[in-house]
């Protein structure tokens, strides 16, 4: 994981949360982790492909997501229904999209995937050999934890093998 990918995300999160929800965030201590990540209530997963490749997770509690979506939509939402789900996924999408624009200004062209939402506490999500940079962002509606498992893209379009698979299995 390369720290140069960090600032575009921090700026994007700050800007998007400020404009969409009016919430200020402050950055906590950064951590680098290699093991799997144990999920919180809600995780938004978005992949980047291109000059930068890897995964971005936004992890937050149900309460925080409901608060964020309520502020974003300007109406009180009480349960994490499908509208709230698509709102949170969209927030992840907008943040990642803006970060990828900033990355491309820094010379790293990349494309983002549609968001996927993982709902449920206590599952393990592993990015395998790609270590994750963890950024806790605290706000007055709770903490949003951002996980960046990014690396320089190997040639565009070329597949990166995680481990070499033996051509002929030895049995």
């Amino acid at each position: 994981m390369n720290v140069k990918f960090l600032n575009p995300f921090l700026d994007a999160i700050h800007e998007v949360l400020k404009t969409e929800t009016g919430i200020d965030t402050s950055k906590g201590d950064l951590k680098l982790e290699k093991g799997p990540y144990t999920t919180d209530d809600i995780t938004v997963i978005i992949a980047l492909v291109g000059g930068v490749e890897g995964m971005v997770f936004y992890s937050l509690t149900k309460e925080t997501s409901i608060c964020l979506v309520s502020k974003m939509m300007g109406e009180e939402i009480t349960e994490f229904n499908s509208l709230a789900q698509s709102g949170i996924a969209e927030l992840g999408n907008v943040i990642t999209g803006r970060a990828s624009v900033k990355l491309s200004q820094a010379g790293y062209e990349s494309t983002i995937s549609p968001p996927t939402l993982v709902i449920g506490k206590g599952s393990q999500v592993s990015t395998l050999d790609c270590p994750r940079l963890i950024i806790p962002l605290s706000s007055n509606v709770g903490t949003i934890t951002v996980h960046l498992a990014l690396r320089d893209g190997i040639n565009q379009g070329q597949k990166t093998a995680q481990i070499p698979v033996p051509a002929k299995p030895v049995i």
């Binding site: 992949a47 492909v49 996924a89 939402l117 993982v118 449920g120 379009g157």
Partner: peptide, 21 residues
């Protein structure tokens, strides 16, 4: 034409995954 992302693994039964719309 398309490019694939590196794989991510989710371990644990009973979690919900939504592909939204």
């Amino acid at each position: 034409d398309s490019t694939i992302s590196p794989p991510t693994m989710i371990i644990g039964k009973g979690t919900k995954i939504s592909t939204i719309n």
